[in-house]
Computed example of a mutant assay.
Amino acid sequence: MRSAPRGWLGVAAVASATFTVVTSEMLPVGLLTPIGSALKVSEGTAGLTLTVTGVVGAVSAPLLTPLLGRFDRRTVLCALMAVLAAGNLLAAWSANFAVMVVARVLVGIGMGGVWAIAAGLAARLVARKAIGSATSLIFSGIALASVLGVPAGTYIGELADWRTAFIAVGALALVVLVALAVLLPRLPAEQGVLLGGVMRLCGEARVRTGLGVVALLVTGHFAAYTYVRPVLEEVSGASAGTIGTLLLVYGIAGVAGNFAAGAGAGRSPRSTLMVISAVLATTVVLVPVLGGSLLTAGVLLAVWGLSYGGVSVSTQTWLLASAPQAREAVSSLFVGVFNAAIALGALTGGLAADGAGATAVMWLGGVLGVAALAVTALGKAPSSGRH
Rank of each mutant, 00 (worst) to 15 (best):
R186P: 11
A103I: 09
L48N: 03
P382Y: 14
V361H: 02
V147C: 06
G345N: 06
L68R: 01
T65N: 03
V337S: 13
T226F: 04
I109C: 04
T296M: 13
A360G: 10
G298M: 08
A343K: 08
A134H: 08
G298Y: 09
Q325K: 09
A278R: 07
A127C: 00
R104Y: 10
E158M: 04
V169Q: 15
R124V: 15
I252G: 06
L246V: 07
L159Q: 14
G141Q: 12
F338H: 02
A171P: 06
R74L: 07
L351D: 08
G241S: 15
L172F: 14
V330T: 13
G87I: 09
A263T: 11
M100Y: 11
A17I: 02
M362H: 07
S236V: 07
L290E: 07
F166L: 06
A95L: 10
R267C: 02
T359F: 04
F334Y: 13
R386I: 09
L31S: 11
I342A: 04
V299W: 02
R267M: 11
M26F: 15
V255M: 02
A134N: 03
G298P: 08
L216D: 02
F259Q: 01
G264W: 10
A281R: 03
L84W: 09
Y155D: 08
V14K: 01
V231E: 02
V182D: 03
D72Q: 13
G309H: 03
W115L: 02
L194C: 06
G305I: 01
G170A: 12
L77F: 02
T51I: 01
A118E: 04
V52H: 03
L39Y: 13
C202R: 06
A171V: 15
Q191E: 15
V56I: 08
P188C: 12
A15W: 01
L295V: 15
V255R: 02
I117Q: 00
T23I: 12
L248H: 05
A302D: 03
V83N: 01
I243W: 07
L368Y: 01
G210Y: 00
P382N: 14
L248T: 13
V22T: 12
T209L: 05
L246W: 03
A119N: 09
G197S: 08
L148C: 03
A326Q: 13
Y308S: 00
D72C: 04
R163K: 09
L300N: 03
M362L: 14
G369M: 07
V207W: 01
V249A: 13
Y155C: 07
L84Y: 04
F19R: 00
V313R: 02
S331K: 11
R267L: 12
A356V: 13
W115K: 00
R104C: 10
A381M: 07
A152E: 05
T53S: 12
A215G: 09
A321W: 03
S37D: 12
A215V: 05
D72T: 00
G192H: 14
F166H: 15
M274W: 05
V29I: 12
L39W: 10
G10P: 07
A15I: 11
A281M: 14
A224F: 05
S136L: 10
L68G: 07
G149R: 01
T359S: 09
A341K: 08
A340G: 14
I156V: 15
G369I: 09
S16A: 15
L84S: 00
A79H: 08
